[in-house]
Design a protein around this nucleic acid. Structure first.
Lengths: 267, 267
DNA sequence: CAGTGGTCTAGACCACCCT
DNA sequence: GGGTGGTCTAGACCACTGG
């Protein structure tokens, strides 16, 4: 199918050689599971206008009947499309093809992940690491008194020996905690950013912001002062639900493209 | 549980009144489905360290046995946690508790959606609308000759009569197309941004970028020149897979907070 | 009321992993 | 081979929607 590109416009859908997608059979001996084949058929049907945006899909039981599978299998097929954001179900009414919508999309950090999990080509360069005793807003966030110490680390993560991102973090210094070493490991070196994650944190929040490079940041990242970059703030909590570490990454947007596809992509 | 906050640290998990989460029964007469109750129990177990990060959950059949439900139901419970990003399954090996990881998160535009779908408090103010005949890079993207016309629209979306976002769009002008009106409707007024979406596009890509307000943008948005903002670019394709509309939104980051939660949040 | 999606069962067989 | 997740069946009953 995908190797036979043709003009598949709304009006040319029913040409002589084109088959009605919804009538194609599924092959139960294929390595591809029945539900996946069925999802493909439905997706193609949507793509070719057989089920227009806003329209209703055949009911689950009808689909199960025509494709000769059980109810649960048909349901699973539809679930695939639902997770892709292509359809949505309404109990008692039916399953409807979603109309395309910018606000329905989401952006993942996998491009960041791809780079950082590639240990072969990634290295870390510590700029500054030590105990900070002066007051600061980070202590407020971590629930500490102004005179309690925190661990501050600044480092650059390099990819192919080129600066990729700058990471600043503040971690609560609590020698009584058995997890402090693990936290340090997490925040300092390997954790948070490599495939083999080491984090012992329970939960966290992230916030993405637009920013401009400061002189200092630009220096370390070998970029121009004022350049548009992303600032990715993080705050992590330990298993006692106490804030335990906060910080942020500075990374150029061309190094971390945030792209999202919506609608029906058949490739 | 949630109304009884206590220090539930790793070492204080097995206090006198706390029960081992995994041994609590599910109530088959509850309005809450069995799989959801089971997912809650597992989530709580993870939250309290019963299943530490990196550890393996009991097998699906074991969980089905101990909770006295069928295999499929236990499986569905685990699927909930998997969709939440809390566990991941490996065929032949087991289901494992994910270690927390910044790069695993994703950011949705629902804060934007919330505002734009609130028709009560939203209005649109068109700055400029017309046919552009001069060459421009937008024509290249749309696959047009330099002298073919495009429709250009600039408008502000207001929320509670305050400027919320600036939208610029270029749409292919193709009077022969039966969908051109629908496209116009989509891009101009209601579509793309309100709950009742009208889009007849098949697919699209979005890209999020950091930017600084230009003088012109700042003027219309009543913000300061140079302020850090998000630029959300979009490109939509019609059902013939031809690029049909492109444009971008400019929106302040405080109006569109991009926040993501990761790990175990029990609330 | 009939039709829809949502949940659930008690099995079955398969693909995969490890020992 | 034994354990794991992945797929699948042929039903059942429920909750919700709309006429």
């Amino acid at each position: 199918m995908k190797s036979n590109p043709k003009k598949a416009g709304l009006s040319s859908t029913f040409g002589t050689e084109s088959t009605i997608v919804s009538e194609r059979k599924i092959n139960k001996n294929s390595r591809l599971p029945a539900y996946a084949q069925m999802a493909d058929l439905l997706r193609e049907g949507i793509s070719q206008g057989e089920h227009p945006p806003g329209g209703r899909l055949p009911s689950e039981s009808a689909l199960a009947r025509t494709h000769e599978v059980s109810n649960m299998t048909a349901r699973q097929a539809i679930s695939v499309l639902e997770e892709e954001g292509l359809v949505h179900r309404v109990q008692g009414k039916g399953t409807f093809v979603r109309k395309i919508n910018v606000t329905a999309s989401s952006f993942s950090l996998e491009s960041l992940s791809d780079v950082l999990s590639d240990r072969e080509h990634t290295s870390v360069q510590v700029i500054k690491a030590g105990v900070k005793k002066e007051p600061g807003m980070e202590k407020e966030v971590l629930g500490l008194e102004p005179n309690q110490p925190v661990i501050k680390i600044e480092r650059i993560i390099l990819y192919n020996d080129e600066p990729f991102t700058l990471h600043v973090s503040y971690t609560r210094f609590d020698p009584k905690s058995p997890t402090v070493e693990a936290m340090l490991d997490t925040v300092l070196l390997t954790g948070l950013m490599f495939q083999e994650e080491y984090s012992n944190f329970k939960k966290g929040t992230l916030r993405l912001l637009p920013a401009n490079l400061t002189e200092r940041e630009a220096h370390y990242l070998k970029m121009a002062v004022g350049e548009n970059v992303f600032k990715l703030e993080h705050l992590f909590f330990d298993f006692n639900d106490r804030p335990a570490a906060l910080g942020w990454f500075i990374v150029g947007h061309e190094k971390m493209p945030l792209i999202s596809k919506i609608g029906v992509w058949n490739d």
